Computed example of a mutant assay.
Amino acid sequence: MSGPVRLLGCVVVVVVLAACQGEAEPEEPAMDMQQAGQRAEVILDGTMAAIHPSVKWARGTPMEQPCSTGLNRPTGTTTVVRSRNILTVVSEQRRGELLEQVRRYWKQQGAQDFSVKSDKSMLWIRATAADGFSLSLQVGSIGNVFADAGLSCAEDSDTTYPPGTPGQPGGSKKEELTPREHSDFWSSGDPRRK
C-alpha cells in the first residue's frame, strides 16, 4: 500500500515541476542534471538535519523526467527530483510540529511561495527555494513522511548518485518507505511530552 501512496506524491511533484514548462520561449537551463542532483541532495540533507530531535531517514528513488515542447519534442533538458523517506514513526499529534520545523528551516534558507495543506488525511507543505528548486514535505495516508527537492528542466548530462541510492549501483533495489523506528518524542501521542 505504501508504494502507491509514495508514487502519488512523486507524480504530483513531477506534474508541478513539468507544468512550469508551458509553450513559452525556453530559458537557458540554470544548471545541468549532475549539478541539480547534487544541489537537491544538499537541500534535503539540510532539511533532515534541521529536524529536532533527529529522525532516521533513507534516500528515496531519484526521479528524472525529460522535458519536452508543447509538441512533445525533446528540449535537451530533464526535470530532476531527489527525495528522503523518514523512517521514524511520526504520530498524528506530532506531524504539525514536523511540518513547522521544516517550514521555519526553509524560510531561513530563503524559500518563498509557501503553501500548506492541513487535511488530516494528507498533510503537506510546499515552497520554492531561492534558486528555483521546488520543495515538498508530505505525510501520506498511512503516516509515511517524505521530502522532495527538484529542479525543472536541467540541462541533460551524465549523473552520479550518492552511495546507498535505491536503484543505483551499491544501493538497494527497493526504497524503504514504511516508518518503523520509534522516537520518544516524534512517536508520542502526547502533545505535551517534550
Rank of each mutant, 00 (worst) to 15 (best):
S152T: 14
M63V: 11
Q108M: 09
E181N: 03
T61P: 01
S183G: 03
N72F: 14
Y161K: 04
P29F: 12
A130N: 07
Q38N: 14
V80Q: 07
T178M: 11
E155Q: 15
S115D: 11
A30G: 11
Q21C: 12
S136I: 02
P179L: 08
G9S: 14
V42Q: 14
K173H: 09
S83A: 15
L123N: 06
K174E: 14
A130F: 04
I125Y: 02
E23A: 13
L8W: 07
V14N: 12
E181V: 15
K174F: 14
A19E: 13
T69S: 15
S188D: 05
Q65D: 08
L177M: 13
A130Q: 12
H52T: 15
R94L: 10
D156H: 06
T77V: 04
S152D: 06
G22R: 12
A129I: 05
W57T: 02
T165F: 09
T69G: 13
R193T: 07
F146D: 00
M63P: 03
P62G: 08
A58M: 05
R126N: 05
I142V: 08
C20I: 13
T128Q: 13
N72M: 14
D32P: 10
A58H: 05
L99S: 08
S152H: 05
H182F: 11
H182P: 00
D184K: 09
A40P: 02
P29C: 11
T69Y: 06
T61E: 11
L17A: 13
K120I: 07
M33P: 00
E175P: 12
G164E: 08
E181R: 08
Q109R: 10
G37T: 12
I51N: 02
L98V: 08
T47Q: 03
S188V: 05
C10D: 15
V14K: 11
L87C: 00
T88E: 07
K174H: 10
S68A: 13
V16L: 13
T178F: 02
L135T: 00
P26K: 07
E176H: 08
G37I: 05
G164L: 11
A154K: 03
G189C: 03
K107D: 03
V42W: 06
R84C: 06
L17C: 13
F133S: 04
D119A: 15
A36L: 11
W186D: 00
F185D: 02
K120A: 15
A154G: 09
T77P: 03
R39T: 12
G37W: 02
G3I: 08
P166I: 09
V13W: 00
M31I: 01
L17E: 11
R84F: 05
E181M: 07
E92F: 10
I43H: 01
R95G: 08
S134V: 08
F114S: 08
I142G: 11
W106G: 03
A49V: 02
T88F: 07
G143R: 05
I86K: 04
Q101N: 04
G70H: 07
G22C: 07
S183P: 01
T128P: 01
T160C: 03
Y105N: 12
S134N: 12
T47I: 04
W124H: 13
G140D: 10
A154Q: 04
M63Y: 04
K194G: 04
Y105F: 15
C153M: 10
I86Y: 12
W186H: 05
G170Q: 09
R82G: 09
W186C: 02
P191F: 06
V16K: 13
M1H: 09
E181L: 01
Q93I: 00
G140Y: 01
T47L: 15
